[in-house]
Design a protein around this nucleic acid. Structure first.
Length: 275
DNA sequence: CTTGTACCCTGACCGC
DNA sequence: TGCGGTCAGGGTACAA
C-alpha cells in the first residue's frame, strides 16, 4: 500500500511513541505474517522483553531498532497498517488484526493486514546490513544527485517506469510516484532506461525528489485503505496529475490521460506531454 | 547477468 | 442478490 512518503509518515508517527518502550508481550493471530527466520512462537520468544530504541525507515521498510542491535523489520506491502492505543481499535475499521505487541506503558501496537502480503521479520544487525546493501540510494537524502539516477538507469533496457520501481536502483518509489514523477519530467514511461539523455535524467531526478517531498509534506496519498497511524489520512491525492486519472483531461494540455499495463501494474501518462 | 511473469491474499466494484 | 471478472501505494521466486 504505501510508498516512501507514506512509510516515512508512519515512521514519524510511531517513533516518538515507541522510542524507549519495552515489548512486554507478543500475540500473533495470523502466523503467516511472521517472516523467516522465525515462526510465530520463536518470534514472540525473541521479541518479548526487548526495548525499542527508535523507529527508522529504509526504502519502504520500517525498522524498529532494538536494544542489543537487532532490528524488527516491517514490510507493509499493500495493506499493512498500524494502530496504537490502550484499547482495541475500531473493530469495523480494523477487521484483520494479525499481531499485537503489548508495551510497558500499557498500550498495544496493533498490526492489521487484510491481504497478509506484508509481515514482520526479526533480524540480527548483520543480516539486516546484508539485505540493506542490495537497496538503492534514498532519493530524498541531500547527497542524492542526478548522476546517481543516471548510473542506475544508464545500462538497462527495461522501461524507465519499471526501472524506477526497482528498489535496487532507487529506494522507495512505487507505482503511484513512478507515474507522477515521469509526468512531471515529461518522460514517456515506456522508454528504455538507457535511452534517456542527460537532460531527461536531470528532469527526472528533480521530479522524483519533488514529488516525494511534496507527498511527504502532505503526509502521503490517502484513498482506498491507506491511513497513517490511528486513522490520520494524507492529502496528496488532490495533487496527483496522472495516477488514477485514465480518460480525464491532462491538467497541462487537456489530452485524455492514458492507462497502460507494464510489468503487470497500471501506468498512467499523458501521451502528448511525455516523450 | 537481465528481464518478464506468476504468485501470494482478500475485498471492493462493475456489468450482467 | 448473486456471480464472474478485474483491479489494488509490493516484493520475491523462478523461467527464459
Amino acid at each position: 500500500m504505501p510508498e516512501l512518503p507514506e512509510v516515512e509518515t508512519i515512521r514519524r508517527d510511531l517513533n516518538p511513541e515507541l522510542a524507549g518502550r519495552v515489548v512486554t508481550g507478543v500475540a500473533i493471530q495470523q502466523a503467516d505474517i511472521v517472516l523467516p527466520p522465525d515462526d510465530a512462537t520463536s518470534f514472540g520468544q525473541r521479541l518479548e522483553g526487548r526495548r525499542i530504541l527508535g523507529v527508522g525507515r529504509r526504502a519502504k521498510y520500517l525498522l524498529f531498532h532494538l536494544e542489543g542491535g537487532s532490528v524488527l523489520q516491517v514490510q507493509l506491502r499493500m495493506t499493512g497498517r498500524f494502530a496504537l492505543g490502550r484499547t482495541e481499535p475500531d473493530p469495523v475499521e480494523f477487521r484483520h488484526i494479525a499481531a499485537r505487541l503489548r508495551l510497558d506503558d500499557g498500550r498495544t501496537l496493533f498490526y492489521d493486514d487484510v491481504r497478509r502480503l506484508g509481515g514482520l521479520r526479526l533480524l540480527e544487525s548483520r543480516e539486516w546490513e546484508r539485505q540493506e546493501a542490495g537497496l538503492g540510494p534514498e532519493p530524498l537524502e541531500p547527497g542524492y544527485r542526478a548522476v546517481d539516477l543516471e548510473r542506475a538507469l544508464a545500462t538497462t533496457r527495461a522501461p524507465v517506469k519499471n526501472a524506477l520501481m526497482d528498489q535496487r536502483r532507487v529506494a522507495g518509489v512505487g507505482n503511484i510516484y513512478a507515474s507522477e514523477a515521469l509526468f512531471r519530467a515529461g518522460v514517456d514511461p515506456r522508454r528504455p532506461g538507457r535511452d534517456l539523455d542527460r537532460a531527461d535524467l536531470k528532469r527526472l531526478h528533480r521530479a522524483v525528489r519533488q514529488v516525494l517531498r511534496e507527498a511527504l509534506r502532505d503526509a502521503g496519498t490517502s484513498f482506498r485503505n491507506y491511513r497513517a497511524v490511528n486513522g490520520r489520512s494524507g492529502s496528496f491525492q488532490t495533487s496527483l496529475r496522472v495516477y488514477g486519472r485514465q480518460g480525464e483531461p491532462c491538467r497541462r494540455c487537456g489530452s485524455p490521460i492514458e492507462r497502460i499495463v507494464q510489468a503487470g501494474r497500471s501506468t498512467f501518462y499523458c501521451p502528448s506531454c511525455q516523450h
